[in-house]
Computed example of a mutant assay.
Amino acid sequence: MSSLASDADEGREIARPTRSQRDPEWLRERLNAWIKTRAGDDAEVTEVVLPSANGMSSETLLAEALIDGAPQSLVVRVAPVAESDPVFPSYDLDGQYRLIEHVAATTDVPLPRLWWSEPDPAPLGAPFFVMSRVDGRVPPDVMPYTFSSWVTEATPDERAEMARRSVEVLTRIHAAPIEGSGVEPPREGETPLQAHLRRLRDFYEWASRDGVSSPLIERGFAWAEEHRPAETETVLCWGDSRIGNIIYDGFTPAAVLDWEMATVGPRELDIAWMIFIHRFFQDITELAGLDGLPDFLTRDQVATDYLAASGHQPHNLDYFTLYSALIHAVVMYRIQTRAIHFGQAEAPADPDDMIMHRKTLEAMLAGTYWGSIK
């Protein structure tokens, strides 16, 4: 399955051990030689930085370059090296590049400028693509923006505007044509949601290939199959539709990032993921004894904002928010198995303890979670 990097973030450093790093000067020299083949002999890469808050799937490099005599701040997304025991079994960086290119050409979704894609692993040791850096601010994951951040310091009206405009981004993405996107279609006889479930199950079975499985995740799969709703209109879905993947200018989205989860399916996949990931951070914040942002990105308000922006009334959000929690559980499970592999975590006696939001998923399966939300 494509990357499901919801960045559960307490495991970020565990999930990105030092052996997965590349040397910045080696990268600069290699990238400098490569960029001349694309932008001419006068092009030069002057600096490459590996940000400390790099992600858990593909790696992000920040580069400064001169192209046609003008300074350019670039972002280079690089597939992980094999020896880093990647979180996901495969990485299609060129496919992500082509998808972003497609969305940019067919919608008004705010996106970074794309420069080049390099599917050949020879220049940097793995495939990569290059895009412009976009100025702005991103809701932090470490510590989560619900603890103390520019989001919590905003006024209620500013946060309402931020939520509304973020939901509007989903409606713009969902207006993109599926044809030409390059996103993997369902198999013959499958619905898009059935295909999504199959790929999630395949990823889970790959992640649990050492023989240790999670009874809670297995229960989640059984529930998701048994309660799978009739499907509504199929659209192009962003997949990792969370505000932590948006760069904001003030409270307005300036760039949408991270398309590795992109799929086709019901638009509720994106709507519910945006709701659930906020609840994930909010639950952590409340466990720490803090107020967080209980009135931000609520299920009812996201649905209302989506209806106002698109004319589509979201359906079956109980199902799709639980399914989001299941997706997130599989990712968390894989992150922890990887940490155990690197000796940076010990295997718990109960495999379900590898799921950080275990209690949330259990409550959702029991039908008690949303009733406990004030």
Rank of each mutant, 00 (worst) to 15 (best):
S6I: 11
S6Y: 09
R16A: 07
Q21G: 06
Q21I: 01
R22L: 14
D23R: 13
T37H: 12
R38G: 07
A43K: 05
E44P: 00
V45F: 05
T60C: 04
L66C: 00
P80A: 14
S90C: 09
Y91W: 10
L99F: 02
E101W: 03
A104K: 09
L111T: 07
R113F: 01
W116A: 15
P123Y: 13
G125R: 10
A126T: 02
P127K: 10
F128H: 04
V142W: 10
T155D: 08
M162V: 10
V167H: 06
E168M: 08
R172Y: 04
H174C: 07
I178H: 09
G182L: 03
V183F: 14
G189K: 03
P192A: 04
Q194A: 15
A195M: 05
L197C: 06
R201L: 13
Y204L: 02
S208L: 01
P215Y: 00
L216Y: 06
P229A: 15
T232F: 03
L236I: 02
L236D: 08
R242Q: 12
I243Q: 01
I247S: 06
G250D: 10
F251N: 11
F251A: 06
A255V: 12
E260K: 10
E260L: 13
T263C: 02
V264M: 00
G265S: 01
L269S: 05
I271Y: 04
H278N: 12
F280K: 02
Q282T: 00
G289H: 10
L290M: 14
L290E: 14
L297A: 05
A303L: 08
T304Q: 14
Y306D: 04
Y306R: 07
P314Y: 09
N316Y: 11
H328N: 02
V330W: 01
V331R: 01
M332A: 13
Q336D: 02
E346H: 05
D350E: 12
H357L: 12
K359W: 03
T360A: 14
M364G: 04
I373T: 15
I373F: 06
